[in-house]
Design a protein around this nucleic acid. Sequence first.
DNA 1: AGATGTACCATTTTT
DNA 2: TGGTACATCT
Length: 752
Amino acid sequence: MVYIEHMSDPFDLGGAEPLPGEPAPPPYLSGLNGEQRAAVEATDGPLLVLAGAGTGKTRVLTSRLANILWSQKAWPSQVLAVTFTNKAAREMRERLETLLGGTVEGLWIGTFHAMAARILRRHAELVGLKSDFTILDTDDQIRLLKQLLSAANIDDKRWPARALSAVIDRWKNAGLSPQQIGQGHPLDNGFANGKAAELYAAYQQRLVELNAADFGDLLLHCLSIFAKYPDVLKDYQERFRYILVDEYQDTNVAQYLWLRLLAQSHHNICCVGDDDQSIYGWRGAEVGNILRFEKDFPGAAVVRLERNYRSTPHILGAASGVIAHNQGRLGKTLWTDTNEGEPVQVRAVWDGDAEARMVGDEVEALQSKGDTLDEMAVLVRASFQTRAFEERFITLGVPYRVIGGPRFYERREIRDALAYVRAVVSPADDLAFERIVNVPKRGLGDATMRTLHTTARASGVSLMAAAQVLCETDDLRAQARNALQRLLNDFARWRGLLSTMNHPELVEVILDESGYTSMWQQDKSADAPGRLENLKELIQALEEFENLSGFLEHVSLVMDNAANDDGDMVSLMTLHGAKGLEFDTVFLPGWEEELFPHQRALDEGGLAALEEERRLAYVGLTRARKRAIVSYAANRRIFDRWVNSAPSRFIEELPEDHIEREGETGLSATEWHDPGAAPAWLKPAHRGIREDRAPRWAARGQADHVFDEGDRIFHQKFGYGRILEMDGDKLYIAFEKAGDKTVLASFVEPAK
DNA sequence: AGATGTACCATTTTT
DNA sequence: TGGTACATCT
């Protein structure tokens, strides 16, 4: 049974036919439980699916999509399915095609940004752009802002472009264009004493001049078009009979407004999400969007998915116990009928090295029992934490992969190559030209570029046009002029080849003739061969596209990292990176106050941030199918300094019935120091440490001293202070330098 | 213009 | 500790 739709232009509904409608049982309903089926078959209208971790939410979303198409409620081109990542979009499409037993064409399925870009290309002129506008990434954005800042004579030491970029991103995430922002806007943060709004406007102006849009613009421009041109909006409202949204809890205001507008005609919007897994508040996601769904879409149906298929009851119990400490949840009670399994293990260790050894030993033990490394993951709060585990795994010879890191198109060589292509395709792309004008080195340095900029600005032309003018005068030194002329000739020649040569070949020619390839061939550094590999990969990827501009869009919006899936390996990643994944065994190291929850998050976001950190803990635990091992170190070397740390408050929040402690309660502090008493991974690793730098043991409740209120004390990190109040082993102390803090007694000694 | 030295800093990250 | 941005030297 094959599902086909013949439609080359997704905007043209003319040739589209509904499904062939063969009389066979719908394949997308088999194996669904009652609550899943309710979500899949819910009648039209707004629908919120509150799906807990491991309840099969992606499956439900896909099945609902299959149902819509199968029962001919809409043609594929009338359905919009949005996700946050390309990976999620790809997976959804693959599952859908499996369910329907054939390919589906014309469907609007992809990321928010890709879908918005698709709309924006058709109406670019309404916001002053051409339909072939380039999409800038963060790197380009920051380079552009740097120029604007220096033009405005703003000290970039005090007010770095990066900070301005963050302010502008915040505004864009909130759906605010420059016209909507007054002086002293609350999201401004006082950048350059209130200049941010002005700079934002200048930046948008410059983007139009460059015929460019940044990621935020893709949505924001759509919003302003919808606001200004109701007929355009109406067109899309009519078109999209069904809208499906994954990970709704992660939508920011701009995405929310975009969706709400598009759903206004048919009201068939189905959002799937889990408020307990909202972990992107810091980049503009609004949990409020999911909490408010029923108000925003009157008459909305709400279906809860609470049956968890992933984890054992102990893991689920531990995770639920932690998340129950959050206020303002929609509330779900996850349950499972799988076998009990092992309690979550909670392990106290001496320091970061001991922790890495513990994890390494455990990995080897599990492996020798027959577990595969693919089914093990180490999930950390901050990416620097992966290093300790990498080192340990290298020592042990355990294969591992680090998930995350720079994306393919963010790599320097890829961005350089793309800049060449961009500059060939669009001569007015100043940012691209600037990027590669002296890569490889051509003797075109700061001085030349300054002259180029002045000339370009004075006559209002692009840098390349200005360069052409300058080559005919003697404003530049002969050497620079010749180099520039040569480069311009190259570009003219390449541009001439655009129509005749096929594009993968052309890119290869450009990279060879510009000297870019040989630059890396001559580079002796260790990563040069890898970069050449990446360039080859880029050219290979080109072959799948009809033209260069299609490819450029793909690269900036769709291309993700090639999955490194050769061989059996342990995965190392951040908790954020682990969302949506699952493993038999999950290690959760570094559960210490200040690291997790991260102090910086708490400083910046207070209670809301603490709750987001707690959701991160919940996400981490619920990644595990069979086994979760949480650990915390008493001492940690962060950069060059030893820090004693208290166990994370999330450890206390783990329900005792579902955990098994090792190291803290079973052994006393004195026993820990006895080499025979503790398991190998508990022993201090450092033998030759000077006494003053050696970590001090800091087990909870194992204070070496008895204190009274009013005692003068000393703390390794905070210095001298006086005890104001005592609550068991918690001391409330007024430090002379560090202010008032609550500290565990074990970290404190009497002042001498 | 390019190389070399130095001070500084250090969540989380998709598009 | 390691990467980066800027200053200074050749």
